[in-house]
Design a protein around this nucleic acid. Sequence first.
DNA 1: TAGTGAATCGACCGATCGGTCTACTCTCGT
DNA 2: ACGAGAGTAGACCGATCGGTCGATTCACTA
Lengths: 201, 201
Amino acid sequence: MVYSQVVETTRIAKATRAGGPRDRLMCAAKELTYRDGMQVGVDAILTAADVARRSLYQHFGGKDGLVAEMLKEEGERMEQIYADALAAGGDDPRERLRALFAFLEKLPDAPGYRGCRFVNADLTLADPGHPAHDVVRAHKQRRREMLEAELRAAGHPDPVTAGIQLELLIDGAAVNAALRPEERHTVAAGLLAQIVIDQGS
Amino acid sequence: MVYSQVVETTRIAKATRAGGPRDRLMCAAKELTYRDGMQVGVDAILTAADVARRSLYQHFGGKDGLVAEMLKEEGERMEQIYADALAAGGDDPRERLRALFAFLEKLPDAPGYRGCRFVNADLTLADPGHPAHDVVRAHKQRRREMLEAELRAAGHPDPVTAGIQLELLIDGAAVNAALRPEERHTVAAGLLAQIVIDQGS
DNA sequence: TAGTGAATCGACCGATCGGTCTACTCTCGT
DNA sequence: ACGAGAGTAGACCGATCGGTCGATTCACTA
């Protein structure tokens, strides 16, 4: 049973006219899997991308391949965004982390925000053998190392534990912001992150 | 494409022989939706519960009804478990919260742990109109009020923000423990929770 | 200009989805 | 002894799933 009215899928095709079939497929997959979940059908993606069925299987081998590749690209994009947010804080590591959490605080305000794409994907794909799991794990691993590096540069007394804690706050806020958007979880996360960052200074 | 070998589903029926068809359906739904995700098929649930197809639709009206009811019961069970964990801490509110996080720390050690059932369900069911969403939101609402009440009793300077922060830590740890089980996220969460709890004391 | 590879359309496949329905069995209260 | 309600077995429904394939069009290049 479906409770919500169907949101038009062809709309996306217009905004995605740029690039070849491969790019259009990636773009459509990004949008639809985020908005409608990973269970979104191949047909919906094809319609949105305005691409022939065969092109999908030639470029990506199948839905799983498309999904995995999409997460990979999105991971790289997100890591760049994180790096930019850190850079906005200047040179001081603590200030850089502060800037990062200030940036994350505003994320849920984006229209259509539905939480962290990677967490959602990993929890949705119950099959432990799905190729997307490795992509997500690798992405989260790199993000944690990024946090740890900043904490280490800041001379934090326990950068490993603190890195995990910052990760918990980021993911916890993303999950809760998606689940109950009316509350300002990211603000509370930012405040607590501040305490973690300032430990031992 | 399915990457993992199929885990036998009939096994569960044996462990669920107790009670009528309704109870067996609930039990099977709890197990299968947690282990295999909410996408698990009706047939798998019926086989595991060793129950006729018709019984499901007579008792619950459909899969969605079964799922919603199951989450409701599980919510009540979890709230009781939380209450017990708090009670283990005695009378002092801070000690009670400490006891709660000590309990939560051990949760991921349970075999087959796959994170928080409610978070997983809510993120998996992309359809915003699915009845399960209300059940999950209500459950999380009550859990937050429970945390807030303890913090208030402890004379915490900002029980609302701290309540949210504890929630972030719990959910963040659950998500990450499911995603990368090899790391001890709950320990880091417990340490940070301690700091939140002790604020202003 | 002829040839080649990419992209398109759309029919088609078997499998599975959630759900409906008929027919039969069992048990229990009257 | 008998009828009612609950449970079971399983065929069946339309829809959709991911995936394959033949036939065609088109752009680019040798």
